[in-house]
């Protein structure tokens, strides 16, 4: 297992390097550069050229890339022209919100998907299964931002059960219990919106795993031992079917990223996703670049996490 994990980690490193190059190249192709928005339009082109030279913007691309990576490693992601502050500081404020939102939606996803997937798989082709599968198809077909809007409108505005924007009620001091409760409260509705849509893939995945495991020979062995149907399901079928779901966990994180981008903007929830959309529309490119890099790294780490989980839970990989 250790060999497998070490090998997997070694692959991750070049992946991240490749990603950084990709993001860098993308940033180079964007119109303008770091100075375009920063500087008074009345500054003369000659002065600008001097500034460029000073900032190293005329250096060959690989020198610039080296400088950029050097900055990254020290936590310097550049300057946001819109907020006039360090991107690092700007993002770190938002990161916690997005992590909270992701955790909440993951929680809802699993708490909904596992029971539904199990029921659907165990009683496959029953009316209940048809109902759940029907919901899944609906979920696959529904765009998340429209669904989030409907949720916001119904539960936020009409029923008024949940706050309609922000990540915390104004006027609360950071660190108090009320502050944390309010943070959680604000994340519930967006988290649930993401979950209700993203559950469908997990439900269908779990269902097909169960239907598949049900027909395996060792299930017959278990029945022949005298295990009751409940025991057969709990000890053999579910355990074996949940294993790939556990491995799926890392990928779930990846898919969450796209979910948060839309849902945060619908709920005006100040996380990375909202920041991303705003920065794109405002052409705050240094922020966009930084976020794309972060999202990319999160995806790579998610995949890594999946493989590591799988290697730990599956004895066929663990013992080698």
């Amino acid at each position: 297992m250790w060999k497998f994990i070490v090998r997997r980690l070694l692959i991750t490193f070049p992946q991240i390097v490749f990603l950084s190059v990709l993001v860098f190249v993308m940033a180079q192709f964007m119109p303008g550069d770091a100075l375009t928005g920063l500087i008074d339009p009345n500054v003369s082109p000659e002065a600008l050229e001097i500034q460029r030279e000073r900032l190293g913007l005329n250096n060959p691309w690989y020198v610039q890339y080296g400088d950029w990576v050097g900055g990254l490693v020290q936590g310097d992601l550049g300057q946001s022209f819109r907020f006039k502050m360090d991107v690092t500081a700007l993002i770190s404020e938002r990161v916690m919100n997005t992590i909270l939102l992701s955790a909440v939606s993951l929680f809802f996803t699993y708490i909904i998907a596992i029971p539904l997937g199990i029921v659907s798989g165990r009683y496959n082709d029953s009316p209940l299964d048809s109902f759940i599968t029907g919901y899944s198809y609906l979920g696959f077909a529904t765009p998340i931002f429209i669904f989030a809007l409907v949720m916001l409108w119904v539960f936020g505005f009409i029923l008024g059960w949940f706050p309609t924007s922000g990540s915390v009620a104004p006027g609360l001091d950071a660190g108090t219990v009320e502050y944390y409760i309010s943070k959680l409260y604000h994340s519930l509705l967006p988290g649930l919106s993401i979950a209700l849509i993203s559950v469908v893939s997990t439900i269908q995945y779990l269902r097909s795993e169960i239907v598949d495991t049900k027909q395996r020979d060792f299930i017959v062995t278990a029945r022949a031992k005298g295990a009751s149907e409940n025991r057969v399901y709990n000890k053999h079928i579910f355990r074996n079917s949940l294993l790939p779901i556990a491995a799926f966990f890392g990928w779930e994180i990846t898919s969450l990223i796209s979910g948060t981008v839309f849902v945060e903007s619908v709920f005006s929830y100040p996380g990375m996703g909202l920041l991303f959309l705003e920065s794109v529309t405002q052409r705050d490119f240094s922020v966009v670049t930084a976020l794309v890099l972060l999202f990319g790294i999160a995806s790579i780490l998610g995949a890594l996490l999946s493989d590591i989980i799988l290697s730990i839970v599956d004895p066929r990989i663990r013992i080698k």
Binding site: D217, F218, V220, T221, A222, A224, G226, P315, R316
Partner: peptide, 18 residues
């Protein structure tokens, strides 16, 4: 599993792999 028990054909698939 008590009064009556069975031995299966394919030993490669008749045991729970996990």
């Amino acid at each position: 599993g008590d009064e009556m028990a069975m031995i299966f054909q394919d030993p490669l698939t008749a045991l729970n792999p996990l």
